[in-house]
Structure formats: C-alpha cells, structure tokens
Amino acid sequence: MEEYSLRSQVFQTIRDDILKGKYEENDELREATLGKELGVSRTPVREALRQLELEGLVNIIPNKGAYVTGISDKDVHDIYMIRSMLEGLCVRWATEHITQEQLEELDEIILLSEYHMDKGHSDQLTELDGRFHQILYEASQSRILDHVLSDFHKYVQLARRTSVKTEERAIKSIGEHNEILNAIKAKDAEKAGNLATIHIMHVMENLHIEEK
C-alpha cells in the first residue's frame, strides 16, 4: 500500500507540474533529475512517466527519453465539449441532493465574486469560479462525476492562459452562476442543468483556440 501511495504521489506531482505550466511542450523529463527533486528512486518516476504517457501528457521515445506533450487546442476543445455535457448532468443531480450549507456557500461565492469584480481582482475571481463548480461536483453526490470533472478542471488550467479576461465576460459569468443557483433553489433540475451546459459552452467560446 505504501509503495502504491508513493507511486501515486510521484505521478500526481509531475502531472500537476505539467498542468501548471512548470514544463514547456517538448521539455525532456529526466528520471534521475526528477527522482532527485522528489527524493525518490528512478523506479516510481519511470512508472509515473509511463502513466502520464497513457494520459497523453508525455511522449516516451525509446532510447531517447520522455518529453512533455502538453495539451493541444483540440484537446482543450474536446474537454470543454465533454465537460459541458457532464456539468449539466452534475447540476441536475446536485439540484436533488444539495444541502442548505452548500447553497449558502454558493450565495457567498457570488457575493464575493461581485466584490472582487468591482475591485478588478482577477486571481480571486478565478479561484472563486473554481470553488463554485467544485461545490456543485460535491453536491452531485457522485464520486465518479466529482473525480472526472475535477480532473477536467485541472486539465483546462493551462487553457486559462488564452482566456480573454474581459470585464464583460466576468460580469456575464457571475450572472450565469447566479441563474444556475436560482434554478437549483427552485428545484428545477432540468433548467439548472441546461444553464450549466450553456455556461461551459460560453466559457469555451471565450478561449482563443486555433483550429487544427
């Protein structure tokens, strides 16, 4: 169990570093260097790199090494398309199971978002946006859906670099969150789910994605 936990930690650390942009596309990931940085042997690093290759984040070339693949524009587009449908399902389920405490936290997030919007605090807005969706994932009471959508959220962190961070879009995003929350409060699962799907589609439209 301890060995599995170590492999999992090494995998998660390298994966997060790739998604956060620590490594550029085509950067070589050396087993010895990573092992030294993480304080582990080369074996768990090698296994983590193989797992990352299965996820498409790393390309292992025999007798050469492992290189960062990164996330293409098509990957980002596909993730948002899938996410839009899953978010709709998530919010439908969340409408049925959400607690009063979660509703109150969502209300607070919207109020804080409006405050930071007025102050021009983009980093806080990004953090609050992520928390808004995370509460809905948890409220769905589906471990699988929570895991998949949380994973997608990490994958699109890189895409945020190309997002058009305009005041107009920020205002619309907060408004869309408020509409979703109002539908949830009204126990209208169908409407809430449709609004969530449309919201993610609007986010995708706000990205500079080049056609491949």
Rank of each mutant, 00 (worst) to 15 (best):
V148K: 07
E108R: 14
N194Y: 10
E168Q: 11
S140W: 01
G88L: 01
T99I: 01
D118E: 14
D73E: 12
K119E: 08
D17W: 13
I18H: 04
S142I: 04
R15K: 15
I209C: 07
M81C: 06
M85T: 10
T43Y: 08
D123K: 15
N63E: 08
L111R: 15
E24D: 10
P44R: 02
Y67T: 02
G193R: 05
Q124Y: 09
H97R: 11
F152K: 08
P62Y: 00
V45E: 07
E96M: 13
K191I: 11
L145V: 01
D16T: 12
N26K: 12
I18Y: 04
G21E: 04
Y155L: 15
E53V: 03
M81H: 08
L195R: 00
Q9H: 12
E138N: 08
K165C: 02
L86A: 02
I14L: 06
S122K: 14
V68L: 05
L145C: 05
L181N: 00
Q100N: 13
H202E: 10
D107E: 14
I174C: 04
R131M: 03
S173Q: 10
I198N: 09
G39H: 07
E168P: 08
R131H: 10
D146C: 11
A94H: 03
M85I: 13
I61F: 05
F11P: 10
S41M: 05
A192D: 05
E2I: 11
G65I: 03
Y137W: 11
K165E: 00
V164G: 11
D151E: 15
G120W: 00
S5N: 11
S8W: 12
